[in-house]
């Protein structure tokens, strides 16, 4: 199961953000994510169009981006006001899950990635491992948090809160095969209607993270929305790293030994 977020119909109402926070009891966040302030008197504008959330984080599991992009053809048409609801991608090969030393991050029966808050000890390894910069540690709590894809709801056959709240069905929840088909149809539709820049992001199971469990239809390049253009799961290179580390360890032992051997000779 997963999300397909069709940003071409997103109206930037931020209902997903609020629904997510209400259902999951995520605290409201003052200032940019990670600033560590929880005093709501310090709330402030970010000066980024209508986006005052900034990015995904421990206290923001859905984030609506507002991009004021120039028209496709300069001088022709209005500013393109792009909105997109970002979320944890629930990667098929999830770096956060791979590197978690405690097994707090697990893959659920819905093929989603879930942090068990009763196991997480806040080591923070998942934070730099995520190629999308999604998961973060809540400073006042110490543990890592991210979108659960409403595990508690999906277990009981309910739609995740954000998809339920989305008024335009920009956020769609369902089996990934079905969503991918739907996304392909939608992309064709948009291309036929002359939206040449429409593209699917994270749909391809052959990409660096094995395809996203939450993928997107974007109306511009991924960077414009703050998404990495070509994310790669860091553990893809892990076997090579282990080999080199083992060789280095052996080299250390040998070097120390050699230092002694020569010493005895003198």
């Amino acid at each position: 199961m997963g999300f397909f977020t069709d940003t071409s119909v997103c109206i930037g109402c931020k209902a997903c953000e609020v629904a997510c926070k209400v259902w999951n009891q995520v605290p409201a966040d003052a200032g940019p994510t990670g600033s560590g302030t929880s005093d709501l008197a310090e709330l402030d504008l970010l000066g980024m169009s209508y986006d005052n959330t900034g990015d995904l984080g421990a206290n923001t599991w859905r984030h609506v981006a507002f991009v004021e992009a120039p028209p496709r053809t300069p001088g022709a048409g209005d500013v393109r006001w792009l909105m997109s609801s970002d979320v944890c991608k629930h990667c098929t090969h999830a770096a956060c899950l791979d590197v978690c030393p405690t097994g707090a991050l697990i893959r659920t029966e819905f093929e989603t990635v879930y942090v068990q808050p009763d196991v997480c000890n806040g080591c923070g390894y998942c934070v730099p491992a995520c190629p999308y910069g999604v998961i973060d540690v809540r400073p006042d709590d110490g543990r890592a948090f991210k979108c659960t894809l409403c595990y508690d709801r999906t277990k009981h056959g309910l739609t995740p809160a954000c998809a339920q709240a989305c008024p335009t069905e920009s956020i769609q929840y369902g089996p990934l095969d079905e969503l991918r088909e739907r996304a392909d149809r939608r992309l064709e539709q948009l291309k036929a209607a002359g939206v040449a820049e429409a593209q699917l992001y994270g749909r391809d199971p052959g990409d660096g993270v094995g395809g996203d469990g939450a993928f997107f239809l974007l109306l511009d390049e991924p960077e414009v929305y703050g998404l990495p253009p070509d994310p790669v799961v860091t553990t893809r290179d892990l076997p090579g790293m282990w080999k080199r580390a083992a060789a280095a360890a052996a080299g250390l032992a040998v070097a120390v030994a050699v230092a002694f051997v020569e010493g005895r000779r003198r």
């Binding site: 030393p101 405690t102 997480c120 000890n121 080591c123 923070g124 110490g142 892990l238």
Partner: peptide
């Protein structure tokens, strides 16, 4: 001391995970 929840440091030895250098390191 670096852990967000230092009291749970023993969780580091909860599993053995070759994909997690921190688990191997623990």
């Amino acid at each position: 001391h670096d852990l967000g929840r230092p009291s749970r440091f023993l969780n580091m030895l909860r599993v053995v995970k070759p994909t997690s250098p921190l688990s191997v390191g623990s």
